[in-house]
Design a protein around this nucleic acid. Sequence first.
DNA 1: CGGCCTTGTGTGACTTTATCACTGAACCGC
DNA 2: GCGGTTCAGTGATAAAGTCACACAAGGCCG
Lengths: 203, 203
Amino acid sequence: MVQHSILETLSGPLRKEVLSSLQSLHFEHGKILFRAGDPCQGLPLVLNGTVKVQMTGLSGHSIVLYRMGADDICTLSIGCLMTGDGFRAEAVVEEDAEVFMVPRGLFDRLMDQSADFRLGVMESYGRRLNDLMLLVEEVAFRRMDERLAHWLETRAVEGSIRITHQELAVELGTAREVVSRLLKELERQGKLRLSRGCISFVQ
Amino acid sequence: MVQHSILETLSGPLRKEVLSSLQSLHFEHGKILFRAGDPCQGLPLVLNGTVKVQMTGLSGHSIVLYRMGADDICTLSIGCLMTGDGFRAEAVVEEDAEVFMVPRGLFDRLMDQSADFRLGVMESYGRRLNDLMLLVEEVAFRRMDERLAHWLETRAVEGSIRITHQELAVELGTAREVVSRLLKELERQGKLRLSRGCISFVQ
DNA sequence: CGGCCTTGTGTGACTTTATCACTGAACCGC
DNA sequence: GCGGTTCAGTGATAAAGTCACACAAGGCCG
């Protein structure tokens, strides 16, 4: 059974060969897929779970750049694969993930032999580039209270979330104190209830 | 004569065909290559000159995302070409530029037939992704005075530069007043001399 | 159970950056 | 030389980041 849509587009024999040569790797929550400076071993195809990609500045502060989920391709790896440079960011598994690791040689062959594979890779690249451009815009021009509110809104469906202020600060690329103060203000307004490691949405 | 290194890697007949079907377009200083929302017409290969790519936030503020120079590929276009989405950013010619515009069909054929072309495109993508990641880090965590000083340092060789505070603010993604104040402080320290539309480096 | 340690949160004081609302200076074209 | 436009400077205020600490919640272990 094919487990990643980009492989489903491959012609019969090629797909068969790929599937027989690849084995899915299992990564648990908290596991590091790669660290800043690591050389790239191959192109990870994410089958399921979620992986966040974040980078740390000289100041020691970190920011989450984007997330990968089921059916994603870790496009960041391709550039490193091509140039031989190390990663600038690190990838941390959030929900347990299964990953196909496509080595350089096989990646080159797939790019050579499948137009659909190329298309999938290019589309993925385009999306990532757009994501990062939007992130730049957000970080440069949006107010932190709006960004925090927006982040919370997208998860509000769950009623409450388990996250520390520090982790939330990394999501937004700011300082823990800033998050604490903004959250406290939202609690004063009656929109949230705070407890250690947990944020509950009122109503 | 081949004018873009990525075309030099093509096999004889293919290169010949490409060069005969493409004509270089000339863009003058200030000309807009594409605007936010425009659909993508093809992949621009920059032969010479420089083009800056910038985006404007909802607030109306803009920030320069990256520059393209001789031998660059406008990788941003590929994603738009693939997905059919419009551009999120705009490209403005700084120094008069010549550009080959590779239409979708030809791009697909080159990707299909030349491993070196693919490699060039992938490398370019990787570099752009790295540039944007570094920009996120810079915008999120670096102090404005350091960023301004760094920007100025990289051009200090020229003795003086013609740029308005507003343009410099767009380079850094901040407000004009902030740039004015920081520059004034540097002038007070005797490091710069300011005049309308011009910054001179002392010594 | 109580003490101790680790991790997470709250907050005051202060600096840096952004925003708003102006003023005035420099240049351009008649 | 006059009037309009573009640039630059600046005070007041708000938002965000930094530093330094106090304290609270939960886990662990004797």
